[in-house]
């Protein structure tokens, strides 16, 4: 292809200050990041970073700016940057949220914005925690379809109402915002935690699944659903808006009605 075919530059003259990012207001924010590096020190400290951000920016953008332009050693997880992969749950101003779904303008920018790792899981570095205990209890509820019938030749059909029954809990992205906001989990790491129960709920109430009883038996454990104190922290923390506490209550009810 010849260079002539490239789109010509725009002929429209724009007055200075109009168009581009110039229209979006900018402001200064201070990001107060919890730093921890076990290779340097056993203690965690707070680091302040002052950055100029736009009104459309999210906390994740501010973290990027810090990492790319100020201090490359700041460590955090992120992948999709659009709220679907669940890698960047962190404690922002004391509440669990996804950094990629939290707009800076929605926070109080007159004060430093605190960013910490989620609580209750071992911190590896800065904002990165070890998710293994979280996934361990997720695996224990068998989060996959178990069907005892014959393998069908086409897809397993289900009525719209049957699908609706567990629709809410299909939305989970395993970000751990709920489990790490739960005060019971903070002191008892053995507790299954909201996320595992949400993902068990997704299969327990699926009409195509045959292992509901097994999952209910697993969650009838000392560290299962009865550990829930209905604090509602999980429902508040969930970035997907899942009614987590309600899902837990439904599992409690299902266990009760099967036992009694």
């Amino acid at each position: 292809m010849s260079a002539e075919l490239a789109e010509p530059a725009s002929k429209i003259e724009l007055p200075a200050g109009v168009g581009g990012g110039g229209e979006i207001p900018t402001f200064d924010v201070t990001l107060r990041v919890r730093r921890y590096n076990p290779e340097l020190s056993e203690d965690a400290t707070w680091d302040d970073f002052k950055v100029t951000m736009y009104g459309t920016d999210r906390v994740l953008d501010a973290l990027h700016k810090v990492k790319w332009e100020i201090d490359g050693s700041v460590s955090f997880r992120r992948s999709c940057a659009h709220g679907v992969c669940g890698s960047d749950a962190m404690r922002i101003n004391g509440r669990n949220r996804l950094a990629c779904k939290t707009l800076l303008k929605d926070l109080d920018t007159t004060k430093p914005i605190t960013v910490e790792p989620i609580k209750g899981l071992p911190v590896e570095k800065d904002l990165i925690v070890d998710m293994e205990p979280f996934f361990q209890s997720f695996r224990e509820v068998m989060p996959f379809l178990i069907n005892k019938g014959h393998e069908p030749t086409k897809e397993r059909l289900q009525s719209a109402e049957d699908r609706e029954r567990f629709d809410d809990t299909t939305k989970c992205i395993l970000c751990a915002a709920c489990t790490s906001s739960c005060p019971v989990f903070w002191t008892d790491g053995q507790y299954f935690g909201p996320a595992a129960i949400v993902n068990a709920h997704r299969f327990i109430f699926d009409s195509r699944d045959d292992a509901g009883d097994m999952r209910l038996e697993i969650l009838n454990d000392k560290e299962g659903v009865w550990r829930c104190r209905t604090t509602f922290n999980c429902s508040e923390a969930c970035p997907r808006g899942i009614q987590v506490t309600q899902a837990i209550a439904e599992v409690k009810q299902a266990i009760l009605s099967r036992k009694i």
Partner: peptide, 28 residues
Amino acid sequence: MTATIDSPRSGKISPQYRRTGGTKGNFE
């Protein structure tokens, strides 16, 4: 607003996360 948390635990998995098998019975 600023929440203070304990110094994070070190990188190794704390022994409290090792599950000790399920408990039988309906006591809880």
